[in-house]
Structures are given as C-alpha cells and as structure tokens.
Design a protein around this nucleic acid. Structure first.
Length: 216
DNA sequence: GCGACAG
DNA sequence: ATCTTGTCGC
C-alpha cells in the first residue's frame, strides 16, 4: 500500500483522486464470493479475515487471516484507511483471487462516493459490494417486512444504495456498489448470500474467523 | 455555529 | 469496534 496518508486532508485527497476509477459495470455471475471483516483487540491491534465461498453452494473453499495494526485512526468517512492494508494482505494470501468481494462497510453510500468497498475494489481491480449494518449517509424509507424488500438510499438527489431486507421482519442492511458492479447486481448477490441470517454468509464467516481464529 | 458520523 | 446479563421468541 504505497504512500499511505498521514493526515485526514491527505486521505481525502486520495479518495477524490481514486473516485473516478470506480466502474459500475461488470460481471453479473460469480463463481466465488469472498467476505472480509476486521476484528479489533485494543486501540491498534487487529485481525483481518477473508473467507471465500463457492457462490452456488455457499461452502467455504479458501480463507486467510492476518494480524496487524490499524493503519489510520478512525474517522467517519476515512474508515477504509484503517483496515485496507491488512485486508489486502489477507487477500494476497489466498490461493487464488475471488470473483466478488463482499465488504463490511459502505461503498458508494459515502460522503465522497468512495467508501471502503469502492476503495478495496479499485485497489484490487475486483468486483466489490459494500454491506453496512447501520446507515451512514442519505435518506431512505423503511422497506416492507418481506425478505427481499428494499427502498433506495438517496444522497443529494442521487440513488447511492438500497436498504435491503435480507430476512423477514429483521432489521435491514445497507447495500451499495463498490466497484465493477451495478446496484441491482449488488443487491441480488447480497440476497443470495443471506439465505438464513441477516448478514450475508461471507461476512458472517469472516467475522467469525477474525474473532475466533476459525470458521465454524 | 451545532450536531451527526461506516467499523 | 468494544465494554456487557438476562430475556423474549421461533
């Protein structure tokens, strides 16, 4: 991870410079799907995990876990600079690159339209989608109670994501495109990855791996 | 100016 | 993110 920012101003400048590289078109079928998550143990110590699943069976086919330190303080809007170095290292330890990255954090639904999912996608060149557990930016209505229901997240008059209900009557998740994917395909993939629980399986397993050191 | 603010 | 018990419901 080349020149890493030292100040918030530098970090924002990097976001504005990389933002134009984001693409919203790409594959709409994926053979493998990777979930990424980071677990903190203290102020700076962290564990970054990546779990790769067969997109069809949702069975684990690969995984990687790295321990390191946060690369930047936590600042809303600059969250990616904290976890990206460790997450990229974890991705490099996989036997082969996954076809889609499911990130724990927003993508386009970001103040400068360049959240963690976009950043990770652009740096790796891989399709990516952002899945947030809580809202960050934009306005939205509560989606209907049925699984698959959704409502748009609007920021400055632009649709930047969707509030998606992955399970009946369960609190929805916030989906936004990362890189090389459309909002429609992003939601389709997140829903397919969450057949049983609120959070998509790739993220649940990555969280478990980062937290306990093992999947399952 | 003040408050809110992904993980 | 993390600090934290019991409790309600399928």
């Amino acid at each position: 991870m080349h020149p890493w920012p030292k100040t918030a101003a530098e970090a924002e400048e990097i976001q504005r410079r990389l933002r134009p590289r984001v693409s919203f078109t790409g594959p709409d079928r994926f053979g493998t799907v990777a979930g990424l998550d980071v677990h903190y143990r203290g102020d700076d110590e962290l564990s970054a995990a990546v779990v790769v699943l067969d997109a069809r069976s949702l069975q684990v086919v690969d995984q990687a876990l790295v321990h390191g330190e946060a690369a930047f303080p936590y600042v809303p809007g600059l969250f990616a600079f904290r976890e990206i170095p460790a997450l990229v290292q974890a991705l490099e330890r996989l036997s082969k690159a996954p076809e889609l990255l499911v990130c724990d954090g927003h993508g386009l639904a970001h103040p400068r339209r360049f959240g963690l999912a976009c950043h990770l996608g652009v740096l790796t060149g891989l399709p990516s989608v952002g899945v947030g557990k809580t809202p960050f930016v934009g306005e939205f209505d509560d989606p209907a109670p049925a699984r698959g229901s959704w409502s748009p997240i609007v920021l400055d008059g632009e649709v930047v994501g969707r509030v998606l209900r992955t399970q009946p009557t369960v609190r929805p998740v916030f989906v936004s495109p990362g890189h090389r994917i459309s909002l429609e395909t992003a939601c389709e993939q997140v829903l397919r990855c969450a057949p049983r629980y609120r959070l998509p399986e790739p993220i649940r397993l990555a969280d478990h791996l980062a937290r306990y050191g093992t999947v399952s």
